[in-house]
């Protein structure tokens, strides 16, 4: 959709300054672009490439390796149902079937209103509170069919302020600081 906005460009430059080599900022900058557009757009990848000094193909090649980068628009809420071993033992496949019926889309599908994309995901490190569902990477623990329907209703009604739209990862960022020790040259401050 779009290149990074002027505001995001400032954030991007602060992120790049935190690494000894700009290329290391590739993944965080792709997250930033995804936060802006809801998915990783081609123009944004081109812009990221310009910022970190590599080719757009290198950005695309790296971004396509990682599951969290969506190269096409998704629903506003990305619903990831974990079905790995601990969740499976606690009934995750039954829950996934319920989710498919409840949302009316198969795994991988997006609801016609663009609200939900359903995914089957791998272990999301919530094994002791299985089965776990992540909505835009926010955890819902020990999910039952009933609690899933409640969650969907809340999301449709817009009463879940704690879950931002897809693309927004962490709402708190490491901020630039005047105590930053590295003045730009790699490891200048080392003892």
């Amino acid at each position: 959709m779009a290149r990074l906005s002027a505001h995001n460009l400032v954030t991007a430059q602060a992120i790049i300054a935190r690494y000894p080599k700009p290329r290391s900022a590739l993944v965080p900058l792709c997250h930033l672009a995804q936060e802006q557009d809801g998915y990783l757009a081609e123009d944004a990848m081109q812009h990221v490439a310009e910022l970190i000094g590599c080719t757009a193909a290198q950005v695309y090649g790296t971004a396509s390796f990682y599951e969290m980068f969506k190269l096409h628009p998704t629903g506003k809420y990305l619903v990831g149902v974990c079905t790995n071993i601990s969740c499976m033992l606690s009934g995750a496949f039954e829950l996934l079937e319920h989710c498919e019926r409840s949302l009316g889309v198969p795994v991988g599908g997006t609801t016609p209103d663009g609200m939900f994309t359903l995914e089957e995901v791998e272990c999301s490190a919530a094994c002791t509170v299985a089965p776990a569902v992540q909505v835009n990477y926010r955890y819902e623990e020990s999910v039952t069919p009933e609690s899933f329907d409640t969650l969907v209703a809340q999301l449709r009604a817009g009463t879940r302020d704690d879950i931002p739209p897809h693309g927004v990862l962490a709402t708190v960022r490491q901020t630039p600081t005047d105590r930053w020790a590295n003045t730009g040259k790699t490891g200048e401050h080392a003892p």
């Binding site: 999301s124 490190a125 901020t175």
Partner: peptide, 18 residues
Amino acid sequence: GEMAFAQERIAAALNEAY
């Protein structure tokens, strides 16, 4: 990447520590 809450907690803690 999937641990958004952990990232927020660590970012907030880092900002305080700085």
